[in-house]
Design a protein around this nucleic acid. Structure first.
Lengths: 105, 105
DNA sequence: CAGAGTTATATCATAAAGTGATATATTTAA
DNA sequence: TTAAATATATCACTTTATGATATAACTCTG
């Protein structure tokens, strides 16, 4: 998969939480807390996406994880993918804002 | 649907293009051009999403549209939804960037 | 003016993504 | 000791996205 490939919003949010080692439940809580409850990721979405990210090798199981608290972290590849996606998303937002601003005039 | 509800990326991109009156084909070309081909919206996605946005009354069929070139534009409601989504997306990006920056140290 | 290329809308069938509900087990705190 | 919170996991279903294809009207060029 190319690094220019766009992430889904859920993938983006989960990956954004994994710049530090965190386990699934912590990610769910964090995203919800950070967005003041606007974005919620349920367990079904969480563990489905975790699986996918592991398969892509964008995250990995952090050392010393017990089965009770499986901790994940971005790989280098994962960081690059996330960075590329941040850039793309910034562009998207910028275009939307320019359009909205022009429409105001 | 609440205005705080998150838009999918495709919906966001299409709505961002409709701050000015544009027809489907023009939106497809515009998004592709603006993102240098990174994001492409094919006709299937385009017209599926157009239908959904019309139903939500976030866009409307602009006056004087011939069937050959159906032109759409954001409604006031649509603008608000887009604006709210821009805000949310900015937050998402900011969180990702903060995380990435901290991980660098 | 024939026909090739582009513009433009539309849908079908399928694939991909997301999620509510539910299950299970452990840990913590009252 | 038991209720609540923590934590992982999966099933079945819905929603969303899209490749392929169809159709037709314009536009340009030889």
């Amino acid at each position: 998969m190319k690094t220019t490939e766009q992430l889904t919003d859920s993938m983006f949010n989960i990956m954004a939480a994994l710049t530090k080692p965190r386990h699934g439940y912590a990610i769910m809580s964090l995203v919800e807390e950070r967005t003041h409850g606007v974005i919620t990721i349920g367990p079904a979405s969480m563990y489905t996406i975790i699986k996918k990210l592991l398969k892509q090798e964008w995250i990995y199981l952090y050392d010393g994880s017990e089965p009770r608290r499986k901790t994940y972290l971005l790989t280098e590849k994962g960081k690059e993918v996330l960075e590329a996606d941040v850039k793309l998303r910034k562009l998207m937002i910028q275009l939307a804002e320019t359009g909205l601003r022009e429409a105001e005039e």
